[in-house]
């Protein structure tokens, strides 16, 4: 069954970046796919409960930080009868080793999935060197 390969539990982030939060809440580490394409790198993160207004993406020097705030939506006058997951913010931090064209970074959010496209700077794009046969 396909579901046996899924990592079921939400992982808590080890320590929120930039020290502790003033608000007492959990911070989870979102599952991430990173795809390298010819001209860019795509970072895709699962952050359910996050929309375009509640996600912060920063690139400081070569540290890429993704932070998503989630406001818990607790139904009124109901009691929790089954609780399998916790609700909290999301954070993930990556170190980029190569140059990224900062001006052209684009990020979108759809159905709780954050997608960041980091275009490679021209200097690091792989150049194909053609080999000529000696005459």
């Amino acid at each position: 069954m396909a579901s046996t390969t899924k990592d079921v539990q939400k992982k808590e982030a080890e320590t929120p970046e930039k020290g502790e939060l003033t608000r007492e809440r959990k911070v989870y580490s979102p599952a991430v796919d990173i795809v390298e394409r010819k001209d860019d790198i795509v970072v895709i993160a699962d952050m359910p409960g996050v929309d375009e207004k509640s996600v912060d993406i920063t690139l400081q020097k070569n540290i890429l930080t993704i932070y998503g705030r989630v406001e818990p939506d607790v139904p009124e006058k109901h009691t929790l009868s089954l609780s399998e997951y916790g609700i909290g913010d999301y954070q993930r931090v990556f170190t980029l080793t190569d140059e990224v064209d900062r001006e052209r970074i684009e990020a979108t959010v759809k159905n709780g999935v954050v997608r960041i496209v980091l275009p490679k700077a021209d200097i690091v794009k792989t150049k194909k060197i053609s080999v000529k046969a000696e005459a």
Binding site: K6, V8, Q9, V74, P75, L80, S81, S83, K110, N111
Partner: peptide, 29 residues
Amino acid sequence: APFAEFPLVNVWASGEEAIVTTEIPGVDP
């Protein structure tokens, strides 16, 4: 018997109704 099967759910109940929430980002509604 793992703790729970994917996807994880929370269930809230009152006398009149139950509310089920689950996190399934990126799924086509």
